[in-house]
Design a protein around this nucleic acid. Structure first.
Lengths: 346, 346
DNA sequence: TTGTATGCGTTATCAT
DNA sequence: ATGATAACGCATACAA
């Protein structure tokens, strides 16, 4: 039955001996069609192997069944699992997903605007904290959109992320419970909102345990492995060593661990370390890293669900969905054991 | 100038005071239009902010500017960088990419057929070694397609991958050069063609060095971490220990390393290990893993380029592009040092 | 409940 | 070199 050219609605109509309008109705509003004809139509569809031409449909309807997903870097392992959640949810509702990455280049972002302007995408998922293309002038023309991880710079766009404060709190609480009092915080609280919130969780945890803050062990970093290593060196140079390092993300934590290992210390015997994100490497470190897990697939699922909701009715639904992340306890945390002035492990 | 409804070709025509046919020509075949009118048109386009409606265009042309990319698992870190190459190349040629993942479920794969049937995708990139949807009956209806990593099961579809034999050969050669003669091969040579080829590289390397094969140290595995660990245990139980482990992929190598570490051995002092793929974790292992790197971005780039070529002219271009992978030398390989019956490192 | 007819925005054919 | 117009496949307002 495989003809060269795909069957159209007319082919179906001819075989079912009805008009194309009836076929269309039988598909989209079956309740408006008599049982008998509905049957004839579905048989004709089966015979022809008919699939509605999405292009024609989108043209007629004025909107497509594609969602554009724009991320700074689709090669980022943090990204891919979100994509899984996004894709599953979209597909379940008949939507396809179109991807693009800006590589943090505004110009690149602009190119994707074309997909939007040319009606190829009905909605937009934004990964960056900022609008990748231009500024407010743009916002008016934007289709229904939702942000992932962080609120979108210009505001007005709902987003889905994790409760960074609660997540960070779980990490501090663990360290406190293990007996730590001198807990360093390594992270940048200026660039990303998420990082600032993790810092808030740290502060709250210390407060709750009535541990006074020691600004000498709160260091800036930019979320890279290198910055973690650097912060560690500063601490050693100043001779203001904590017993535990709470890091703003896993990359930073990895940097700290690498530095500690290089200096001959053993974790968690001499120092404890926690991260945030649970990137794939976290479980492969020695020792494996105790960290806060981003529920990536779930974030993707919720973000897409929210967008689809926006797409169906124009009700401004919830404007912010915060998932509570779990603490993944591995082997990088233990009771404080290091004695300042003592000897490295090996 | 941001009207509520996007400008159409008619708006442009009106402002430029020409017919819509001329506008279309000015855009697609400018040489057929007088200089003066071409100018008027481009000004009108600038004024209106016109972008051609991709839906209408695709409908008229009978094909879209989307490429469908189907992978077994888009969450796989091995996948994401290929995606980068695919996307860059596609975008540079005005194509967008549509993604789907089958999770190794044929049923899921079938759903993506709809994108093809409904003319939403002009071409197809296949990641699995097999056609995700059904069998030969399907092939006829498939759009121009290219496979990634491995030839597609039913054949007839060009593909882009790496020269696994040459890559594996580089790994054995290194081990041989370091002085190893008892080199185990851990991997499955039945399921994936790539694995079988890596085995061929192993065989060839041994032959070239006139090292007789010892089937007692050639073990099956399925490419998972667990299977690497398992193979190691078998070797220990049988007391047929090699001095080096050449693994069919990084996952297997990681399993072997984990097992070795658990038993208290030190690499590369007691044993050497090599992998294949260069997954992100490889560099974070202790010791970091010496492995063969898949040029992922390049693979993606070439695959897309091949597909676009197929799309433009119907010439059956090269049917197979094999990139030569590099050996990434890290710290898991050294000269053989382990003395059977000797004591573990620590 | 069903059919007829129109238009969505393009591109291509055929005149001029 | 340019313009008028048909056709791509579909959904829907309106008629019956």
């Amino acid at each position: 039955m495989s003809n060269s050219t795909p069957a159209t609605i007319e082919d179906v109509a001819r075989i079912a001996e009805v008009s194309i309008a009836t076929v269309s109705r039988a598909i989209h509003t079956p309740e408006k069609v008599a049982n008998s004809t509905r049957l004839k139509v579905s048989q004709a569809i089966a015979i022809t192997g008919y699939t509605t031409n999405a292009m024609a449909r989108s043209l007629r309807l004025g909107r497509s069944n594609m969602i554009l997903v724009v991320a700074p870097d689709i090669g980022d392992p943090n990204f891919s699992n979100i994509l899984v959640g996004l894709e599953n949810e979209a597909r379940a509702h008949g939507y396809g997903i179109l991807i693009g990455h800006t590589q943090n280049d505004a110009q690149r972002g602009l190119e994707y605007l074309k997909f939007l302007n040319s009606n190829q995408a009905a909605g937009l998922i934004l990964f960056t904290g900022i609008l990748p293309f231009g500024h407010q002038t743009m916002t008016a023309r934007l289709p229904p959109s939702v942000g992932v991880f962080e609120p979108v710079y210009n505001g007005g766009i709902p987003y889905v992320g994790v409760d960074d404060i609660a997540g960070a709190r779980k990490a501090v609480d663990l360290l406190i419970a293990e007996g730590h009092r001198k807990i360093a915080f390594i992270g940048d609280s200026r660039t990303r909102l998420a990082y600032a919130r993790r810092r808030q969780g740290y502060d709250a945890g210390l407060d709750a345990a009535r541990v006074p803050q020691d600004m000498r062990i709160v260091l800036e970093g930019d979320g890279t492995i290198e910055s973690g290593r650097l912060a560690l060196e500063q601490l050693f140079m100043r001779d203001t060593l904590p017993t535990a390092f709470m890091c703003v993300n896993d990359q930073t934590a990895i940097g700290v661990m690498l530095g500690l290992t290089a200096r001959g210390y053993d974790m968690p015997r001499d120092f404890s370390v926690t991260g945030f994100d649970d990137v794939p490497q976290a479980s492969y470190m020695t020792p494996s890293l105790t960290t806060v897990r981003q529920p990536r697939t779930m974030i993707g699922k919720h973000a897409m669900a929210l967008l689809l909701e926006l797409l169906s009715d124009n009700q401004p639904a919830e404007t912010e969905i915060l998932l509570v992340p779990d603490l993944v306890v591995r082997n990088s945390v233990g009771p404080p054991g290091f004695k300042p002035g003592g000897k490295p492990a090996r």
